[in-house]
Design a protein around this nucleic acid. Structure first.
Lengths: 354, 354
DNA sequence: ATGAAAGCGCTAACAT
DNA sequence: ATGTTAGCGCTTTCAT
């Protein structure tokens, strides 16, 4: 450690071979003949710095493909612009991401996040341990979490909220809910769908979907309410609680066709299930809308191009993405969690018109 | 700065009110009555530590929702398990993520990454500046990049590769390619599809898709090759270079129907385009497969349930995800970039059977 | 088995 | 307008 005088001569000669690691601020500083602080300020666009010096430094940085190390910067600044987006999976079925609706919802969130200068960390967790979604927050990797669906873990989510984890879920509005959520008005959507079918003269309407899942459950409630409002009783045996598996709707249709009571309409809790079921029905010789009417939910891109085009309750994914992100930021700004609802309507297409 | 003797008595009393920030290692150390080093070791599961001490510390951590700060840890360890997945967008159309195929490919990548203990950073970039995809790498946010599609930026990508950015692209194998890629054998796929249509007796086969995009271009080459092999000439006016917009295929069908030459089959470069086009044709009174045969590409989940079920060249997204991740890791391990091809076959369904 | 101290790459007072 | 220094939260020698 020979002590050196003030001139910026390092103990090592300038021609030291670049070390294996990547180029970093010191290297740029050395090349520019300034201190790291100057480089730091130049990279941050500080006006304190001499324009020419800044120019020289930023060009040096560009030509060396140097960018400020985000991890170190975040650590120092105690800032974080990353949002963790978590997609639960059913450990029973080991199901992979497949429903186009969820996928395009993720797209909507990605767009909203990108637009607002945030990064998106995408991960999957066991649907039975949704509280694991908080880990990205606890490790400081993310400033907050967006969770796709609450599944059966309402209580876990409430607990997470009490612990102060900033998160928003895409899903239903549940009683005693302590956390922020964004979602369709599922009861209303289910009501609209069923009401429409009843108006078209349908009387034996199957419900396709597992009512144990909060959103589907609420759509089912709407289905029941519509029956009630019309002075009718929904036949419980027409509720088909199919699991979220690719061929489950087809099998349900076959079972119904063989052993089940006759139906003249169907309300499917998702377009995906509807399309699969309609295909199965066609193979069984039952045609939509001639033999039975169909309404579904989501309005994925293909719903309008299906055969027949599907009458459905749209869930606008772009708006959903915007709302989820806005809700999360509101939470982070100290506002109390709110439950937001997307406008809910019915788009009538051929599948429900005779 | 009163100097204090060796005993672990901080200048501040132990009962200092928890500062606004989150709980961190010092806090756990204080609570456990040990040093931060001990906590660090305990959290890392070091065997050097007394089992009881470790037990006490981990429990303390859990009850306080403490997790080691990932950013600081990565900085110190110079490690990184994050992979950046980049989806290009067309700035012209400001198109958002919509094709179910891309979305499910992302799902496949997410699954592969999760399975191998990696994090996934999802972002979008302007398709004209694909080299921006490298920024997550340069800022140290990600250890490498997976790029979905090469668009028109083959040269930019080659430049990125020469600069040593570790990345793999999902896409076509191009001449003079310096970067790693994974993709379907698009020429072969296009050949298989077209050959099959010719065998079914089709003679005027439309090609739906923009051949300027590398993957579509190669499928188009396969289409031409199949014609040639059969001693036929493909009519250039049957190549319909539709942009990647939701209603473009429908408009192409209408134009073709009004002014265009008659066709007896169609090879669509994606299932999405095929489904949209088939719907449009139906409105025009042209039915599949009675009036014309259709083959497409991707085999998205709905292809089998469409009406009619689509004959298509599958692109297995789960395998693709695995391969992309494996390729990236091979690259990171110092292996040279390779171009890998997924097995390519044709699944025949009703859309191409008379 | 545990602690003290240095340093990962960076930023921001506080100098000058 | 620029440099010096301390420290963000952590891990790891090196001591003991």
């Amino acid at each position: 450690m020979a002590r050196s005088p003030s001139p910026p001569l390092p103990t090592e000669p300038a021609a030291a071979p670049a070390r294996p690691g990547r180029v970093q601020m010191v290297d740029i500083a050395r090349l520019a003949g300034v201190s790291v602080s100057t480089v730091s300020r130049a990279m941050a666009g500080s006006t304190l710095i001499n324009p020419e010096t800044r120019q020289r430094i930023t060009e040096l940085a560009r030509s060396h493909n140097y960018s400020v190390n985000a991890g170190a910067q975040n650590l120092r600044l105690k800032q974080n612009r990353t949002v963790s987006v978590v997609v639960p999976y059913d450990p029973q079925t080991r199901q992979h991401l497949s429903d186009p609706f969820f996928l395009s919802l993720i797209g909507g969130i990605a767009d909203a996040l990108t637009e607002q200068g945030h990064e998106m960390l995408l991960s999957r967790v066991d649907a039975n341990q949704l509280d694991q979604a908080a880990s990205a927050y606890h490790t400081g990797r993310a400033m907050g979490v967006v969770l796709i669906g609450q599944w059966h873990q309402h209580d876990q989510l409430n607990a997470m909220a009490s612990q102060g984890v900033p998160f928003v879920v895409w899903g239903a509005q549940l009683p005693d809910q302590l956390y922020a959520s964004v979602g369709s008005d599922n009861v209303e959507g289910g009501r609209l769908a069923t009401e429409h079918l009843l108006q078209q003269g349908a009387r034996r309407i199957a419900f396709l979907g597992d009512p144990d899942l909060p959103e589907f459950g609420q759509r089912h409630q709407g289905y029941l309410q519509a029956h009630e409002a019309a002075g009718l009783m929904a036949d419980p045996s027409l509720t088909l609680p199919v699991p979220m598996l690719p061929d489950a709707p087809a099998r349900a249709m076959e079972d119904l066709h063989r052993h089940g009571p006759p139906i003249d309409a169907m309300f499917a809790a998702s377009d995906l299930m509807a399309m699969t079921a309609v295909g199965a029905l066609r193979r069984l010789g039952r045609h939509v809308p001639e033999d039975l009417l169909v309404v579904s939910y989501d309005d994925i891109a293909l719903a309008a191009h299906a055969h027949p085009p599907l009458t459905t309750v749209p869930q606008p994914v772009e708006a959903a993405g915007q709302m989820l992100v806005a809700s999360l930021k509101a939470l982070l700004a100290g506002e109390p969690p709110v439950r937001r609802t997307l406008p809910t309507e019915l788009i009538v297409r051929d599948s429900s018109r005779r």
